Simulated scan of single mutants.
Amino acid sequence: MDSWEAILLVITTIGSVAAAIGAWFQERRSAATQLAALQRKLDLVMDRLGIAAPEEPEVAEHLENGRTVEAVRAYRKQTGASLIEARQAVDRIAAGRRLPEQ
């Protein structure tokens, strides 16, 4: 095997490995996107049916004390949600806790 064949073999191997890694990352990204879409749909169904999401005690405590940022942090820690998802969930929890104005 001469040097050009060896170089082509190395380049082909590197390209194959890079393609496999790229496909793996794309699959993970796709699964995360699908999971987020399912979560949003489930939230909409629960809202439509009037079912409240279970409250986390630590989140509720922070909301009672007016500490929204800490409530979002606690929600993220307990659920693994993204910042945006956690903020939306905490806002929904806070809205559900408010008493209707009379």
Rank of each mutant, 00 (worst) to 15 (best):
T68F: 15
L99H: 10
L44Y: 10
S82F: 01
E58D: 10
L35H: 10
L83M: 09
K41R: 15
R97Q: 12
R76L: 01
Q39E: 13
A53P: 06
M46N: 14
A52Q: 09
I51L: 08
A23D: 09
A20R: 06
P54Y: 02
T13I: 09
Q78L: 13
Q88T: 14
G66D: 02
K77G: 00
A81D: 06
G15H: 02
A37C: 04
T13W: 00
V69Y: 06
R29C: 04
V69R: 09
E56I: 15
S16G: 15
Y75N: 12
I84Y: 07
G15N: 05
R98K: 12
P54T: 09
M46T: 14
A81F: 02
A89K: 03
R67T: 12
A53M: 11
P57E: 04
K41V: 14
R40Q: 14
W24C: 09
R97N: 09
E56K: 07
W24L: 11
Q78S: 15
E64F: 07
I14D: 05
R76T: 05
G50E: 01
R67I: 06
E64L: 14
A20H: 01
L63V: 04
Q26E: 14
E27F: 00
A71Q: 03
A23S: 13
A36K: 05
T79E: 04
E61D: 14
S30G: 06
R73Q: 13
E70W: 02
L44I: 11
A95Q: 08
D91W: 05
W24M: 12
A32K: 12
A94N: 07
E58H: 07
G50P: 03
A86Y: 00
A31W: 05
T79R: 05
K41W: 00
V59I: 04
A60F: 00
T33V: 14
G80W: 02
E61A: 13
L42V: 12
F25P: 03
R98L: 13
E56M: 10
G50N: 04
A53Q: 12
P57S: 04
V59A: 03
Q26V: 15
A71R: 01
A86T: 04
Q26L: 13
P57W: 06
L42G: 07
R87N: 11
E58W: 04
S82I: 08
A53Y: 08
L44D: 14
A89N: 07
E27I: 11
A18R: 07
L83S: 08
G96L: 04
Q78P: 00
W24F: 10
A71L: 03
L83Q: 07
Q88M: 06
E70Y: 00
I93L: 13
G66A: 04
A53G: 10
V72C: 00
R97M: 14
E27C: 07
V90L: 01
S16I: 15
A18F: 05
A52C: 04
L83I: 11
A19S: 06
L63E: 01
R87H: 13
I51H: 06
A37N: 07
P100K: 04
L42I: 11
R29S: 10
A18V: 11
G96N: 06
I51Y: 05
A32W: 00
L63G: 00
T13M: 08
E64W: 06
A74T: 05
L44C: 06
Q34H: 10
E61F: 01
E64I: 14
A95K: 07
G15Q: 01
A18Y: 05
Q39R: 15
V69W: 00
A36V: 05
A86F: 01
L99E: 15
E27R: 12
E85A: 14
V59S: 02
E64Y: 08
R97A: 11
